[in-house]
Design a protein around this nucleic acid. Structure first.
Length: 356
DNA sequence: CAGGCGTGGCG
DNA sequence: TCGCCAAGCCT
């Protein structure tokens, strides 16, 4: 695809100028070139909105002020701080990445995006963001904002549900970069792409009247911003029912619940969780002799990207001297220490609101 | 390469 | 309620 000369010449300067005047400047990961802080923010922001990340980011920085602190932590502590943020492989890769940076790079993040992209959890887009923000490297990010902004700007007809079209659009993004940018230019340009996508060139009802490049936009000229980005594939969401077995007992003043570790792959991989069964009979059989005391709590829906879960919590109170459940790899966790383990969001919320 | 992987917000 | 998706990566 060929880019009109006016677009390739005008886009980057207009975007840089606009970002400096009207873009976002107060986010906690802005105004620094510390690769650790930029990296942490970029990982958290993968598929996650700014408003969601804010609280997690500050807590992480408070606990792990630098890459050494993070590398020295246990994986469980990292997971507990990540709990609720989702896409938990990001947290494990974050931890692995910190250890790799310390053990193989002397505690310093590599500068070049191509080297950054070899680290766990850092793909091409995140590598570009880090290198552009920290060192002004002339590389383009390729996130959802860029795909939407550029597919409209160029009236790009490729189907972005296919990898090939995404690669093609990324090439176009590279060709739209400022020609001879200073480091500050690359920071403003990269941030500008994100700011434009997040606040102006939005999915629904884009605010073209506030857009600095509306005059260059092909979709706008055709009055067809809603046709882009082109995406055909739909997400098929499977419905499943899960029974959550909550085993609880009193130990002195406090109560404890039985948690096991989720398998290393799949949903909530590696997190702590109450035992999960595929149907009611299995759940009650896991409760063993105590199944008679089972209380069925209200079912709740929980949507994941590819599945729609219907969660059926079953609460069983055991006597204080009851034997441990015949479930491997589990342990009793005091309810007032649930904040210290990585739990899936619905499980955390469930355990925090148990009836007496 | 297509599919798997969380959660919350929005219209 | 439902579908879509948000600063994507890994296998």
């Amino acid at each position: 695809m060929k880019i009109p000369g006016s677009v390739s010449a005008g886009f980057a300067p207009a975007l840089v100028h606009w970002q400096r005047r009207d873009g976002r400047h107060g986010l906690p990961w802005q105004g620094t070139r510390d690769p650790y802080r930029v990296w942490l923010s970029e990982i958290m922001l993968q598929q996650t909105q700014v408003s969601t990340v804010l609280g997690y980011y500050q807590r992480f920085l408070d606990r792990f002020p630098d890459v050494h602190a993070l590398a020295s932590a246990s994986e469980d502590e990292v997971m507990s701080l990540w709990s609720g943020l989702g896409y938990y492989s990001r947290a494990r890769n974050l931890h692995r990445c910190a250890r790799t940076v310390v053990s193989e790079h002397g505690g310093l993040f590599p500068s070049m995006s191509s080297v950054l992209a070899t680290l766990p959890g850092i793909g091409d887009s995140t590598a570009a963001a880090i290198a552009a923000f920290c060192h002004g490297e002339r590389v383009s990010i390729a996130d959802g904002n860029v795909r939407r902004v550029l597919s409209r700007l160029l009236a790009f007809e490729g189907d972005l549900s296919q990898a090939r079209a995404q690669r093609e659009l990324w090439q176009l993004a590279q060709s739209l970069l400022p020609e001879h940018p200073s480091a500050d230019d690359m920071v403003a340009y990269t941030q500008g792409l994100m700011d434009l996508g997040a606040g102006v060139c939005t999915l629904r009802q884009p605010a073209c009247e506030r857009c600095p490049v509306a005059g260059l936009c092909e979709a706008r000229r055709a009055g067809a911003t809603d046709r882009y980005p082109v995406k055909t594939r739909r997400v098929a969401r499977r419905h499943e029912s899960w029974w959550l077995l909550i085993l609880r007992k009193r130990v002195g003043e406090q109560s404890v619940v039985w948690l096991e570790r989720r398998p290393p792959r799949g949903i909530w991989a590696g997190l702590h969780c109450v035992p999960v069964a595929g149907d009611e009979a299995q759940a009650l059989s896991a409760a063993g002799d105590h199944a008679g005391a089972a209380r069925h709590l209200p079912a709740q829906a929980h949507a994941l990207t590819h599945r729609e879960l219907r969660l059926h919590p079953v609460l069983v109170d055991l006597v204080a001297d009851a034997a441990d459940p015949a479930i491997p790899d589990g342990r009793w966790v005091p309810t007032d220490q649930l904040g210290d383990v990585g739990l899936p969001a619905p499980v955390r919320s469930l355990l925090l609101q148990l009836p007496d």
